[in-house]
């Protein structure tokens, strides 16, 4: 069973991001990718996706216009005070 279908190949491409593939899985996947443009694109897409979500995360982290709302800040502050007061009894 050397020939993978695209469905099987795509599953392995995804799993290769989550676990080391076995030797035979790697061989069969590599063989499939040699002859299949669509799965090559898919493989590349998943790597682009992974980079993109990380970049998205960094954008959010680095965006100083994103701040706790005054409401949330007040609420958290009240909870902090309540928690510290009750701790002294």
């Amino acid at each position: 069973m050397l020939m993978l279908t695209c469905k099987q190949a795509s599953k392995l491409v995804s799993q290769s991001l989550d676990r080391p593939l076995s030797w035979s899985e790697r061989l069969r996947l590599r063989f499939h990718l040699l002859i299949c443009d669509a799965c090559n694109h898919f493989n590349r897409q998943l790597r682009v996706l992974r980079n993109a979500v990380k970049r998205m995360m960094q954008h959010t982290e680095g965006d100083s216009t994103i701040q706790l709302s005054l409401e949330a800040r007040d609420r958290i502050s009240r909870e902090i005070n309540r928690s510290t007061e009750s701790g002294y009894h």
Binding site: M56, T60, S64, A72, E79
Partner: peptide, 23 residues
Amino acid sequence: GDYLYRFALARLRDTHQAEDAVQ
């Protein structure tokens, strides 16, 4: 607070959940 909020928001992608996480 703002730093922690952004850190949480980047991962939870929901403002209420991110506020809860900071609290």
